[in-house]
Amino acid sequence: MGTTLLQEAWAVEVGSREPWAEDSKLYQPIEETQAQCNEKAQSLAVQSYLRMCGLDHVVEQRPNAEFISPTGSVPVLQCGSFVLADLDSIVGFVASKGICLTSNLSAAENADHAAYFSLVQTVFDNAELYFSWVVPNGYEVTWKRYGSVYPWPLSDILPWSKRRAVKRAIKDWADKQERDVLEEIDSCLFALSERLAEREWFFGSKPTELDALVFGHLYVLAGESDGTPGSKVSSLIRKYDNLMNICSRVKNTYFKGSLT
């Protein structure tokens, strides 16, 4: 698990000499029955980022995607002999091939872009993990979905141990009250909405990885059905029209009809 650093460095170093592999694959958990909210969001973010860059890829669903991943997070990108996970590693890898969506931003804009990217990544990722694993009625659903690919008794043991691991990994969030988490999400949404204002994309005239990331998270969170803990988040998101607009913009531009 801890060896990803070298791998990333190696991928950036060696990867730049090879062109983008046409048969690149993106591995993710089974969307319908297994994947958690944060996994779906990250997968969607990576997919839209790759589409923004115009890079061909095929999405494959694997029940053990989490274990294929060098970091434990999904989706996993396999490009030639390189295996990478996490949007920021993938962005770095793609940049090593000379494709960069933020290249025409100024230095100050790049700094802001990095700050907002980190904001969206941490707040939404932690919040999604919180609603899937920490909140009791969210965990009920997660427990079934996470265990669905395993036979008994693993279907009981593995969700339990995963929950412990998640709680340890998001320690400062796991102790929060649901109200505080919603507040945190709302202030993040507010900040994003302020930053976006009435423009088409967050930075510059073209979409960047921030747009992909925001789309991935918001599209999945806004699509949460009523009754689930995530539905409280989706009603928060719907208050921000400009954020909803950017979601539909990404969807219409890059996923013509392929998303429901």
Binding site: A115, Y116, T122, V123, C188, A191, L192, E194, A197
Partner: peptide, 16 residues
Amino acid sequence: QKERADILAYKNMIKY
């Protein structure tokens, strides 16, 4: 407001 939004983003980046 925009500066306040930026502050939130930067604070978060420092924290994480």
